[in-house]
Protein backbone atom coordinates (compact mmCIF):
# COMPACT_ATOMS: atom_id res chain seq x y z
CA UNK A 1 0.00 0.00 0.00
CA UNK A 2 2.72 2.43 1.06
CA UNK A 3 4.47 1.81 -2.20
CA UNK A 4 1.59 3.36 -4.07
CA UNK A 5 0.73 5.96 -1.52
CA UNK A 6 4.14 7.51 -1.61
CA UNK A 7 4.25 8.40 -5.27
CA UNK A 8 0.66 9.52 -4.97
CA UNK A 9 1.35 11.95 -2.18
CA UNK A 10 4.65 13.02 -3.70
CA UNK A 11 2.87 13.63 -6.97
CA UNK A 12 0.34 15.86 -5.36
CA UNK A 13 2.92 17.92 -3.50
CA UNK A 14 4.89 18.32 -6.69
CA UNK A 15 1.82 19.53 -8.48
CA UNK A 16 0.56 21.87 -5.83
CA UNK A 17 2.53 24.91 -6.89
CA UNK A 18 1.36 25.16 -10.47
CA UNK A 19 4.03 27.77 -11.05
CA UNK A 20 4.94 26.94 -14.60
CA UNK A 21 8.47 27.38 -15.81
CA UNK A 22 9.03 29.71 -18.72
CA UNK A 23 10.23 27.20 -21.28
CA UNK A 24 7.14 25.11 -21.45
CA UNK A 25 3.76 24.97 -23.12
CA UNK A 26 0.68 23.44 -21.54
CA UNK A 27 -1.75 21.86 -23.98
CA UNK A 28 -5.32 20.64 -23.61
CA UNK A 29 -5.86 18.22 -26.45
CA UNK A 30 -8.85 16.42 -27.86
CA UNK A 31 -6.56 14.83 -30.41
CA UNK A 32 -5.28 11.48 -29.17
CA UNK A 33 -2.01 11.14 -27.39
CA UNK A 34 -0.52 8.75 -29.92
CA UNK A 35 -1.04 11.38 -32.64
CA UNK A 36 0.54 14.31 -30.79
CA UNK A 37 3.15 12.91 -28.43
CA UNK A 38 5.71 11.96 -31.10
CA UNK A 39 5.61 15.55 -32.38
CA UNK A 40 5.85 17.09 -28.93
CA UNK A 41 8.82 14.85 -28.18
CA UNK A 42 10.55 16.03 -31.33
CA UNK A 43 9.77 19.65 -30.53
CA UNK A 44 11.24 19.30 -27.05
CA UNK A 45 14.35 17.68 -28.49
CA UNK A 46 14.84 20.49 -31.00
CA UNK A 47 14.01 23.50 -28.86
CA UNK A 48 14.29 22.44 -25.24
CA UNK A 49 10.74 23.58 -24.61
CA UNK A 50 8.74 21.00 -22.64
CA UNK A 51 5.17 20.35 -23.68
CA UNK A 52 2.81 19.19 -20.95
CA UNK A 53 -0.56 18.00 -22.10
CA UNK A 54 -3.79 16.45 -21.03
CA UNK A 55 -6.21 14.68 -23.37
CA UNK A 56 -9.98 14.43 -23.17
CA UNK A 57 -13.04 14.96 -25.35
CA UNK A 58 -13.53 18.45 -26.71
CA UNK A 59 -16.69 19.18 -24.70
CA UNK A 60 -15.24 18.62 -21.22
CA UNK A 61 -11.96 20.34 -22.11
CA UNK A 62 -13.82 23.43 -23.29
CA UNK A 63 -15.89 23.44 -20.14
CA UNK A 64 -12.77 23.22 -18.06
CA UNK A 65 -11.09 26.08 -19.92
CA UNK A 66 -14.16 28.24 -19.40
CA UNK A 67 -14.42 27.39 -15.71
CA UNK A 68 -10.76 27.98 -15.00
CA UNK A 69 -11.01 31.40 -16.56
CA UNK A 70 -7.99 33.64 -16.33
CA UNK A 71 -6.13 31.21 -14.07
CA UNK A 72 -6.12 28.32 -16.51
CA UNK A 73 -2.78 26.57 -16.86
CA UNK A 74 -3.53 25.83 -20.53
CA UNK A 75 -1.69 27.72 -23.26
CA UNK A 76 -3.07 25.85 -26.23
CA UNK A 77 -6.19 23.92 -27.16
CA UNK A 78 -5.98 21.22 -29.81
CA UNK A 79 -9.19 19.69 -31.01
CA UNK A 80 -10.68 17.82 -33.89
CA UNK A 81 -13.58 18.99 -36.02
CA UNK A 82 -14.51 22.44 -37.16
CA UNK A 83 -17.62 22.44 -34.97
CA UNK A 84 -15.57 22.07 -31.82
CA UNK A 85 -13.12 24.76 -32.93
CA UNK A 86 -15.96 27.09 -33.78
CA UNK A 87 -17.54 26.59 -30.35
CA UNK A 88 -14.23 27.18 -28.63
CA UNK A 89 -13.81 30.44 -30.49
CA UNK A 90 -17.42 31.48 -29.78
CA UNK A 91 -16.97 30.59 -26.10
CA UNK A 92 -14.21 33.17 -25.89
CA UNK A 93 -11.48 30.86 -24.66
CA UNK A 94 -9.16 31.41 -27.62
CA UNK A 95 -6.97 34.43 -28.34
CA UNK A 96 -6.78 36.16 -31.70
CA UNK A 97 -3.38 35.48 -33.16
CA UNK A 98 -1.96 37.23 -36.17
CA UNK A 99 1.12 35.52 -37.52
CA UNK A 100 2.43 35.79 -41.07
CA UNK A 101 3.91 32.31 -40.69
CA UNK A 102 0.58 30.74 -39.78
CA UNK A 103 -1.22 32.66 -42.47
CA UNK A 104 1.28 31.44 -45.04
CA UNK A 105 1.22 27.83 -43.87
CA UNK A 106 -2.54 27.38 -43.47
CA UNK A 107 -4.91 28.07 -46.39
CA UNK A 108 -7.60 30.64 -45.61
CA UNK A 109 -10.54 28.22 -45.68
CA UNK A 110 -8.90 26.04 -43.05
CA UNK A 111 -8.52 28.67 -40.35
CA UNK A 112 -10.65 31.08 -38.37
CA UNK A 113 -10.99 34.41 -40.17
CA UNK A 114 -10.05 36.14 -36.91
CA UNK A 115 -7.05 33.91 -36.21
CA UNK A 116 -8.47 32.23 -33.13
CA UNK A 117 -7.74 28.77 -34.51
CA UNK A 118 -5.73 27.24 -37.32
CA UNK A 119 -6.21 23.90 -39.05
CA UNK A 120 -3.37 21.42 -38.53
CA UNK A 121 -4.52 18.50 -40.63
CA UNK A 122 -7.24 17.96 -43.18
CA UNK A 123 -9.63 15.03 -43.20
CA UNK A 124 -11.59 14.08 -46.27
CA UNK A 125 -14.98 12.42 -45.71
CA UNK A 126 -15.69 10.47 -48.82
CA UNK A 127 -17.44 7.42 -50.25
CA UNK A 128 -16.27 3.84 -49.90
CA UNK A 129 -17.91 1.19 -52.10
CA UNK A 130 -17.81 -2.53 -52.68
CA UNK A 131 -15.73 -3.35 -55.74
CA UNK A 132 -17.76 -6.55 -56.15
CA UNK A 133 -21.17 -4.98 -56.46
CA UNK A 134 -20.75 -1.33 -57.46
CA UNK A 135 -19.31 0.26 -60.60
CA UNK A 136 -17.60 3.57 -59.82
CA UNK A 137 -19.60 5.26 -62.61
CA UNK A 138 -22.78 4.54 -60.63
CA UNK A 139 -21.51 6.84 -57.91
CA UNK A 140 -21.53 10.61 -58.20
CA UNK A 141 -22.37 12.75 -55.18
CA UNK A 142 -23.36 12.66 -51.50
CA UNK A 143 -26.79 13.86 -52.64
CA UNK A 144 -27.12 10.96 -55.04
CA UNK A 145 -26.99 8.45 -52.16
CA UNK A 146 -30.54 9.60 -51.37
CA UNK A 147 -31.71 8.26 -54.73
CA UNK A 148 -34.08 5.23 -54.56
CA UNK A 149 -31.61 3.19 -56.62
CA UNK A 150 -29.58 2.83 -53.38
CA UNK A 151 -32.57 1.47 -51.44
CA UNK A 152 -31.27 -1.16 -49.01
CA UNK A 153 -27.68 -0.64 -50.16
CA UNK A 154 -26.39 2.21 -47.97
CA UNK A 155 -24.63 1.96 -44.61
CA UNK A 156 -23.92 5.00 -42.44
CA UNK A 157 -22.22 5.80 -39.21
CA UNK A 158 -24.36 7.28 -36.44
CA UNK A 159 -25.46 10.92 -36.68
CA UNK A 160 -24.08 11.42 -33.19
CA UNK A 161 -20.59 11.57 -34.60
CA UNK A 162 -19.48 15.09 -35.26
CA UNK A 163 -18.04 14.15 -38.69
CA UNK A 164 -21.52 13.46 -40.01
CA UNK A 165 -22.88 16.57 -38.33
CA UNK A 166 -20.30 18.68 -40.16
CA UNK A 167 -21.03 16.95 -43.45
CA UNK A 168 -24.74 17.70 -43.13
CA UNK A 169 -23.93 21.25 -42.01
CA UNK A 170 -22.12 21.85 -45.29
CA UNK A 171 -25.10 20.41 -47.17
CA UNK A 172 -27.24 23.00 -45.41
CA UNK A 173 -24.78 25.76 -46.25
CA UNK A 174 -24.75 24.83 -49.92
CA UNK A 175 -28.27 23.66 -50.64
CA UNK A 176 -30.43 25.16 -47.92
CA UNK A 177 -32.13 23.44 -45.06
CA UNK A 178 -35.09 22.07 -47.02
CA UNK A 179 -33.08 20.34 -49.71
CA UNK A 180 -30.60 19.05 -47.12
CA UNK A 181 -33.43 17.50 -45.13
CA UNK A 182 -34.77 15.75 -48.25
CA UNK A 183 -31.33 14.27 -48.84
CA UNK A 184 -30.92 13.06 -45.28
CA UNK A 185 -34.40 11.54 -45.34
CA UNK A 186 -33.44 9.77 -48.55
CA UNK A 187 -30.30 8.38 -46.91
CA UNK A 188 -32.34 7.06 -44.01
CA UNK A 189 -34.79 5.37 -46.40
CA UNK A 190 -31.90 3.70 -48.19
CA UNK A 191 -30.20 2.29 -45.10
CA UNK A 192 -29.53 -1.45 -45.18
CA UNK A 193 -28.84 -1.60 -41.44
CA UNK A 194 -29.18 0.63 -38.39
CA UNK A 195 -26.40 3.26 -38.31
CA UNK A 196 -23.07 1.96 -37.02
CA UNK A 197 -21.08 3.23 -34.08
CA UNK A 198 -17.95 3.86 -36.13
CA UNK A 199 -16.60 4.18 -39.68
CA UNK A 200 -14.66 0.93 -39.59
CA UNK A 201 -17.79 -1.05 -38.73
CA UNK A 202 -19.65 0.57 -41.61
CA UNK A 203 -16.86 -0.38 -44.02
CA UNK A 204 -16.74 -3.93 -42.72
CA UNK A 205 -20.47 -4.18 -43.35
CA UNK A 206 -19.88 -3.13 -46.96
CA UNK A 207 -17.05 -5.63 -47.31
CA UNK A 208 -19.18 -8.45 -45.86
CA UNK A 209 -22.07 -7.70 -48.21
CA UNK A 210 -24.60 -6.17 -45.84
CA UNK A 211 -24.62 -3.03 -48.00
CA UNK A 212 -22.78 -1.58 -50.99
CA UNK A 213 -21.61 1.92 -50.14
CA UNK A 214 -20.87 4.10 -47.13
CA UNK A 215 -19.39 7.47 -46.15
CA UNK A 216 -16.14 7.52 -44.14
CA UNK A 217 -13.05 9.55 -43.32
CA UNK A 218 -10.23 8.37 -45.55
CA UNK A 219 -7.82 7.48 -42.74
CA UNK A 220 -10.19 4.81 -41.47
CA UNK A 221 -10.09 3.33 -44.94
CA UNK A 222 -6.29 3.56 -44.90
CA UNK A 223 -6.12 1.72 -41.61
CA UNK A 224 -8.39 -1.06 -42.83
CA UNK A 225 -6.48 -1.30 -46.09
CA UNK A 226 -3.20 -1.64 -44.21
CA UNK A 227 -4.60 -4.55 -42.22
CA UNK A 228 -6.32 -6.27 -45.13
CA UNK A 229 -4.59 -5.19 -48.36
CA UNK A 230 -6.88 -7.33 -50.55
CA UNK A 231 -10.13 -6.03 -49.15
CA UNK A 232 -12.88 -5.64 -51.76
CA UNK A 233 -13.39 -1.92 -51.09
CA UNK A 234 -12.35 1.26 -52.87
CA UNK A 235 -12.52 5.01 -52.32
CA UNK A 236 -14.61 7.27 -54.50
CA UNK A 237 -14.26 11.07 -54.60
CA UNK A 238 -17.79 12.51 -54.85
CA UNK A 239 -19.03 15.92 -55.98
CA UNK A 240 -16.04 16.45 -58.29
CA UNK A 241 -18.12 18.50 -60.72
CA UNK A 242 -19.75 20.56 -58.00
CA UNK A 243 -18.76 21.38 -54.45
CA UNK A 244 -15.90 18.93 -54.00
CA UNK A 245 -15.13 16.38 -51.30
CA UNK A 246 -16.23 17.33 -47.79
CA UNK A 247 -13.28 18.47 -45.73
CA UNK A 248 -12.91 18.73 -42.00
CA UNK A 249 -9.93 19.71 -39.89
CA UNK A 250 -8.15 19.09 -36.68
CA UNK A 251 -6.83 22.36 -35.41
CA UNK A 252 -5.49 24.39 -32.55
CA UNK A 253 -5.54 27.83 -31.01
CA UNK A 254 -3.69 29.79 -28.34
CA UNK A 255 -5.84 30.23 -25.25
CA UNK A 256 -6.99 33.66 -24.22
CA UNK A 257 -5.34 33.49 -20.81
CA UNK A 258 -2.22 31.61 -21.86
CA UNK A 259 0.65 31.93 -19.43
CA UNK A 260 3.14 31.38 -22.26
CA UNK A 261 1.47 32.93 -25.30
CA UNK A 262 4.68 33.38 -27.29
CA UNK A 263 5.82 29.83 -26.63
CA UNK A 264 2.37 28.54 -27.57
CA UNK A 265 2.36 30.52 -30.80
CA UNK A 266 5.84 29.26 -31.63
CA UNK A 267 4.69 25.67 -31.13
CA UNK A 268 1.64 26.31 -33.29
CA UNK A 269 3.82 27.78 -36.04
CA UNK A 270 6.12 24.80 -35.85
CA UNK A 271 3.22 22.36 -36.07
CA UNK A 272 2.12 23.97 -39.36
CA UNK A 273 5.67 24.12 -40.72
CA UNK A 274 7.09 21.86 -43.39
CA UNK A 275 9.20 20.16 -40.73
CA UNK A 276 6.22 18.94 -38.72
CA UNK A 277 3.33 18.67 -41.16
CA UNK A 278 4.32 15.41 -42.83
CA UNK A 279 4.35 13.68 -39.45
CA UNK A 280 1.37 15.45 -37.96
CA UNK A 281 -0.84 14.31 -40.82
CA UNK A 282 1.07 11.13 -41.60
CA UNK A 283 0.69 9.57 -38.15
CA UNK A 284 -3.01 9.25 -38.84
CA UNK A 285 -2.96 9.12 -42.65
CA UNK A 286 -4.62 12.54 -42.88
CA UNK A 287 -3.82 15.33 -45.33
CA UNK A 288 -1.36 18.09 -44.34
CA UNK A 289 -2.87 21.58 -44.33
CA UNK A 290 0.37 23.12 -45.50
CA UNK A 291 0.14 23.04 -49.32
CA UNK A 292 3.91 22.70 -49.62
CA UNK A 293 3.84 19.32 -47.88
CA UNK A 294 2.84 16.14 -49.71
CA UNK A 295 0.69 13.55 -47.95
CA UNK A 296 2.37 10.23 -47.22
CA UNK A 297 2.72 7.56 -49.87
CA UNK A 298 -0.39 5.51 -49.00
CA UNK A 299 -2.51 8.61 -48.94
CA UNK A 300 -1.09 9.98 -52.19
CA UNK A 301 -1.86 6.67 -53.87
CA UNK A 302 -5.57 7.34 -53.40
CA UNK A 303 -5.25 10.09 -55.97
CA UNK A 304 -5.99 13.78 -56.28
CA UNK A 305 -9.41 15.28 -55.73
CA UNK A 306 -11.20 18.60 -55.63
CA UNK A 307 -11.93 19.54 -52.06
CA UNK A 308 -14.80 21.67 -50.80
CA UNK A 309 -13.47 25.20 -50.44
CA UNK A 310 -16.22 26.39 -48.13
CA UNK A 311 -14.64 27.77 -44.97
CA UNK A 312 -14.86 24.99 -42.39
CA UNK A 313 -16.04 27.65 -39.96
CA UNK A 314 -19.47 27.37 -41.65
CA UNK A 315 -19.75 23.74 -40.60
CA UNK A 316 -19.28 24.82 -37.02
CA UNK A 317 -21.85 27.55 -37.26
CA UNK A 318 -24.50 25.27 -38.74
CA UNK A 319 -23.72 22.22 -36.63
CA UNK A 320 -26.67 22.45 -34.29
CA UNK A 321 -29.03 23.06 -37.21
CA UNK A 322 -27.59 19.89 -38.74
CA UNK A 323 -28.24 17.85 -35.59
CA UNK A 324 -31.80 19.10 -35.43
CA UNK A 325 -32.31 18.23 -39.05
CA UNK A 326 -30.96 14.70 -38.62
CA UNK A 327 -33.15 14.16 -35.54
CA UNK A 328 -36.20 15.25 -37.53
CA UNK A 329 -35.27 12.95 -40.39
CA UNK A 330 -34.97 10.01 -38.00
CA UNK A 331 -31.25 9.53 -38.69
CA UNK A 332 -29.95 7.96 -35.49
Amino acid sequence: MLRFLKPAVAGWILLLPLAASSSEVVVYSARNEQLIKPLFDRYTEQTGVTVRYITDKAGPLLQRLEAEGRRTPADMLITVDAGNLWHAAEGGVLAEVSSPILEANVPANLRDPKGRWFGLSERARTLVYSTDRVQPQDLSTYEDLADPKWRGRLCLRTSKKVYNQSLVATLIARLGEQRAEQIVRGWVENLAAAPFSNDTKAMQAVAAGQCDVTIVNTYYFGRLQKKEPDINLALFWPNQDSSGVHINVSGAGVTRYAKHPEAAQALLEWLTSEAAQADFAGLNMEYPVNPKVMPDATVSAWGQFNADTLNVNEAGRLQSAAIRLMDRAGYR
Binding site: G59, T158, K160, V162, R332
Partner: peptide
Protein backbone atom coordinates in the same frame (compact mmCIF):
# COMPACT_ATOMS: atom_id res chain seq x y z
CA UNK B 1 -24.86 -0.51 -30.07
CA UNK B 2 -25.99 2.94 -31.18
CA UNK B 3 -28.91 2.29 -28.84
CA UNK B 4 -30.44 5.58 -27.71
CA UNK B 5 -31.22 5.90 -24.01
CA UNK B 6 -31.72 8.84 -21.71
CA UNK B 7 -27.96 9.42 -21.52
CA UNK B 8 -27.95 9.83 -25.28
CA UNK B 9 -30.13 12.91 -24.88
CA UNK B 10 -27.78 14.24 -22.21
CA UNK B 11 -24.78 13.81 -24.48
CA UNK B 12 -26.62 15.24 -27.44
CA UNK B 13 -27.49 18.37 -25.50
CA UNK B 14 -23.93 18.75 -24.31
CA UNK B 15 -21.67 17.63 -27.15
CA UNK B 16 -24.06 18.39 -29.99
CA UNK B 17 -25.69 21.63 -28.93
CA UNK B 18 -22.88 22.62 -26.53
Amino acid sequence: FNYDTFTTAIYKAWFGFF
